[in-house]
Design a protein around this nucleic acid. Sequence first.
DNA 1: AAAGTTTATAAAAATAATTTGCATTCTTTT
DNA 2: AAAAGAATGCAAATTATTTTTATAAACTTT
Lengths: 330, 330
Amino acid sequence: MKVKLEEIAKKSGYSVATVSRVLTGKSKGRSQSVRNILLTARDLGYRTSSVRYTNLDLPVDIALITQHDAEEFYSCLYESFDRIASKKNIHLSIHSAKYSKSITEQIHILSKYNDGVILMAPTLDKEGYKNIIAKIGSFPIISIAPVDGNIVPTITFDSYEGGRLAAEILVDSDYQNFGIITGPLEKLEANLRRNGFQDYLRKKGYKINWEYQGNYSFSSGEIAFENIKKHKKSSLGIFSSNDQMALGFLHTALENGATVPGDFGIIGYDNMPYSKVFYPKLSTINTNLDLLAKNTLEYIIREIKIPQKSITNPTTTLLPVELIKRRTHK
Amino acid sequence: MKVKLEEIAKKSGYSVATVSRVLTGKSKGRSQSVRNILLTARDLGYRTSSVRYTNLDLPVDIALITQHDAEEFYSCLYESFDRIASKKNIHLSIHSAKYSKSITEQIHILSKYNDGVILMAPTLDKEGYKNIIAKIGSFPIISIAPVDGNIVPTITFDSYEGGRLAAEILVDSDYQNFGIITGPLEKLEANLRRNGFQDYLRKKGYKINWEYQGNYSFSSGEIAFENIKKHKKSSLGIFSSNDQMALGFLHTALENGATVPGDFGIIGYDNMPYSKVFYPKLSTINTNLDLLAKNTLEYIIREIKIPQKSITNPTTTLLPVELIKRRTHK
DNA sequence: AAAGTTTATAAAAATAATTTGCATTCTTTT
DNA sequence: AAAAGAATGCAAATTATTTTTATAAACTTT
């Protein structure tokens, strides 16, 4: 049941004393035997922090924690992380905190079995992040969702700029009236996207004439269309906080005889695979998930290899987003 | 660094001896203290098999291993498992074996940190499964992809019946010619769906007039349409091995001026959320993922609580599928 | 090829886990 | 509600496991 050094010694072909020395970090670590022993220990399920032997390029365990939902977005996110991780000798595991009684406890336990944690928890507030840091101390962690209050190091997309880009193209397309289908506003990034959109419009002398708060699902895009029927303004430039809602809206609008990009200009967000399949193809804000995965994994590997005493000044890195022009704006 | 019984004792408020007795399974396990101690040990990252205390309903760690891809299917699968697991005090972690050098090794290591493993590896062959069993022995495992040769206990959808249902509705819709967009035929379930389709047609005196092997992506559905252009037969009843390819085909066909369900009848597979969003709404084979998650998790929990000496007669349980009639067949 | 390093080993020492015997507490039965 | 029986808790003793040490062997470098 429990793994003894004796077992590791036997399997690896070294003496118990040597195994002990390697496992307690007494070896200088430039020989093949150190590598063999650490790999054998790992294989037998003997958990050890191999931080001391960073030069050996041993496999690293990293946990990605999300609030999982049945959206293609998550599949795409995981696919990028999985692919990039596989190139870096990283063993990635995915955990959902959606139904977690205590995300702090969950991260705490995961920190026992992983070398670092990547956190995507858009609904977590300042207090939540503070609790996590208080619990795990200087354990390597990074957030890939915007964090209110700058408590955890963060790498995320420039949601504000995404909203601004959407407003810009809709203004340039000569729409005079504007609408927005926001994401759930308890998620910070939904607010940022909205703010970027609104601020640009205001600067150009326009305002948001219609707003609907959705939940990122197809059906909330459909419901958004039902809602807009009451609204009399014609030729509305609409920014949707994700592609699913944009497509739900778009296709309900078409079924109801509306024209796109005539009656409605629509800009989505995320550039999911299906947004370029269905006619008319959706104009949208692209986020480069590979870039996110690469930056995040490289950051966390650095943190693991050169551990910090404590998180002093958590930085926020904003990754660029870009507009993909397709067929749903003039 | 390493957790000592002393720490567990201190944190839980019991003596080291008591902690030891609990951890070695000497306690009968009907008191609150056993529970407290095990929970504290878990919290501190002390790994122990708590199989002996099955009556205490302690949290169980289960790993779901897939060959992950950027398809909504995986998001839906994980969402079902995540939701059902949360109701059963199961901590689910998701791992991808897509880029794994040795899936046997990966499962072996995961078996050290989990109480059971759920495996979805459609491309794994008989030998692969044999190797896994040889390595992990009687460790609780279940496959949710069809397994060739009946080596690992399996709970999966009745893919053959799904193909048959697709053929039946297309024949009933009075199509005289038939086509199929298969999945990658190294995946067993793609073959089963194909066989179910083919066998029913044959029984009714028809045959597959056109066949294209896709890779489950939207774009392979688009390419399938390019391929069929050469084919002169009109009014073709087509079965696609998943919704993505069906939608890729369907929308390329419509863009090219074809009519559905006139020129083409199309039946998809999986009943993904987007298949009921886009017009015309896709007829498809529904698989109840909640049912899969429920059955699988309950099976693996049983295996964990009542361990078997060895896998003697691995059973295969086929879950029913159903046809969802929408707008893409006559 | 010799000197300087590093690594491996067996035995000794240190640390950690388990068992024991008895006291205490909890459960069940009458 | 009390007594018998069973389970659990504790400190000390025992056993198991890990780490260190002293020395030998094997590499590396000049």
